[in-house]
Amino acid sequence: MVLIFAVTTGVIFACGIYLMLRRSMVRLIIGLSLLTYAVNLLIFSMDDLSTRGAPIIGATEPEKMADPLPQALILTAIVISFGVLAFTLALAYRASQAVQSDNMDVLQSTDREV
């Protein structure tokens, strides 16, 4: 279980970073979202990965409960990354319209003297 988890997280990280290093805006955004998923998995693995009960009083014995905090952290992180990625998507769409290209290398007008 731990091995599968570690390998999966690592592969997603690698994919995300690989995609982010491409020149395409769309790939950049897919890469960013993969990166956030990988981080969520990483935080999830901070708890014991064995199967435990839901951390709800009454449903599970306190000794057999999973740690609720990493789950709460992930939930918050998902919410935040949802908002940020939606904004990034809209931004990239507008930017690609403005520069008529999907290529990140074209975005240089702010770095040059006019």
Binding site: L91, A98, L107
Partner: peptide, 16 residues
């Protein structure tokens, strides 16, 4: 246009 270009860089690096 400049805002969109600069914004994309700003957003990406801050997300990382």
């Amino acid at each position: 246009r400049g805002q969109l270009e600069g914004g994309l860089k700003y957003v990406t690096l801050n997300l990382i």
